[in-house]
Design a protein around this nucleic acid. Structure first.
Lengths: 191, 191
DNA sequence: GCTTAAAGCTATCAACGTTAGCCAACGCAG
DNA sequence: CTGCGTTGGCTAACGTTGATAGCTTTAAGC
C-alpha cells in the first residue's frame, strides 16, 4: 500500500481546514483521518493527541491573524489603521471560524508556548496601531484591552449567529469601528 | 433502595452548579450522576440527553442574567443604568462561568425556544437602558449591538484568562464602561 | 392493601480517543 | 541493484463516555 506522505504540518493544515468546514466542536480524529485518506491511528505518528492537534491549529490561527492584521495596517496610521486592521481580523474570523474557535479554546502553557508568542504578536499589532492616537500612557493598556474586547466580542457573536435581527451586520461593524475611533481620538486630544 | 427524588429541574440545577465548578467542557453525565448520588442511566429519566441538559442549563443562565440585569438597573437611567447593568452582568459571569459558557455554546431552535425568549429579554433590558440616552432611532440597533459586543467580549476574555498583563482588570472595566458612556452620550446630544 | 406510573438499577451497545504491535514502503550504503 | 534500518501506515484491542433496554422496587392514589 502506498504512503499518504503526511507530516505534522500537513495534519495540522488538514485539521485547520476541517474545523473551518464542520466546526471546532465537531473535530474528531476519525473524520480528519478520513479526509486525509488514512486510518485513525496513523495520525498519531504525527501528532501526540487530539489536544495537541487542537493546540497546533490554534497556533496556526494566531499566526495567520497576526499576518492578516500586519498586512492590512501596513503603511497606515490612526483611524485608517484601526479600520483596516479591524476589517482584516473580522474577515479572517468569518473565513476561518473553526480556527478562531480553536484559538479561543486553547490555553497557553507557559511563557514560551508558541501560542503565547503568537498571541503577544497580535497584541503588539494593536498596540502599534493605538500608538497613532497619542493616548495618555496610563490609559493605553485600557484602550488596548477595549479594542481587543470589541473585536473579539463582535467576531464571536457574529460567527455564532448572535446577531439575529435583520439589520445589516456590515453596517453595524463600520458603525462600531467609527464609534471606537471617535472615542480614541477624543482620548488623544484630551491627552 | 431509597429514591433520590430527582426532577428535571433538580438535574438541571445540579448540572448548572457542576459546570460552574469544573467548567462547561468537563460536563459529563457520569460526573453529574455521582454528584447527585445516582447512577448514570438514571439521569435519562429526567433529561433526554446531555445536549438537552446543556440546553436547559443555558436557558437557566439566560434567565438568571436577565434577572440580575433587571434588578441592577431598576430605578436607574442613562449612565447609572449602564454602569449598574454592566457590573451586574460581569459579576454574574464571574460567579457562574460554566453557565455562561453553556449559554454561549447553545443555539436556539426556533422562535419559541425558551432560550431565544430568554435571550430576547436580555436584549430588551439593554434596549430599555439605552433608551435613556435618546439616541437617533436609526442608530439604536447599532448601539445595542455595541453594548452587547463589549460586555460579551469582556466577560468571555476575562473568564478565559485573556487579560494576562498585571494591570487591574476592574479598573479596565470601569474605564471601558466610561468610554462607552461618553460615546453614547455624545450620540444622544448630536441626535 | 392493591394497583400502577415512574425512579432507579444492571447489563449492554456504539462511538471515539488512544495504545500496542506488525508489516511494508522508502532512503541510503555498499 | 541489493540489503538494511527507519518510519508511516495498518489491524486489533482497550478505556471512557453517551445512550438504550429491560427489570425491580418505590411510593402515590384509590
Amino acid at each position: 500500500m502506498p504512503r499518504a506522505g503526511l507530516t505534522p504540518a500537513a495534519v495540522t493544515e488538514g485539521g485547520a481546514a476541517l474545523v473551518d468546514e464542520v466546526g471546532f466542536a465537531q473535530l474528531s480524529m476519525g473524520l480528519l483521518a478520513e479526509r486525509l485518506g488514512v486510518k485513525t491511528p496513523s495520525l498519531y505518528k504525527h501528532v501526540a493527541s487530539q489536544a495537541e492537534l487542537a493546540h497546533r491549529i490554534a497556533v496556526q490561527a494566531m499566526t495567520e491573524v497576526t499576518a492578516a492584521i500586519r498586512d492590512a495596517t501596513q503603511g497606515r496610521a490612526g483611524s485608517e489603521a484601526l479600520a483596516a486592521g479591524a476589517q482584516a481580523m473580522r474577515r479572517y474570523v468569518k473565513e476561518h471560524p473553526g480556527r478562531y474557535a480553536a484559538a479561543n479554546a486553547a490555553r497557553a502553557a507557559g511563557e514560551d508556548d508558541p501560542l503565547a508568542v503568537a498571541g503577544d504578536q497580535v497584541l503588539a499589532s494593536w498596540a502599534a496601531m493605538l500608538h497613532g492616537y497619542r493616548i495618555d500612557p496610563d490609559q493605553e493598556i485600557h484602550a488596548l484591552r477595549l479594542v481587543r474586547t470589541v473585536l473579539h466580542g463582535f467576531a464571536t457573536l457574529e460567527v455564532s449567529g448572535g446577531f439575529q435581527i435583520a439589520v445589516d451586520v456590515d453596517a453595524t461593524f463600520t458603525w462600531t469601528i467609527d464609534f471606537l475611533d471617535r472615542g480614541l481620538r477624543a482620548l488623544g486630544e484630551a491627552h
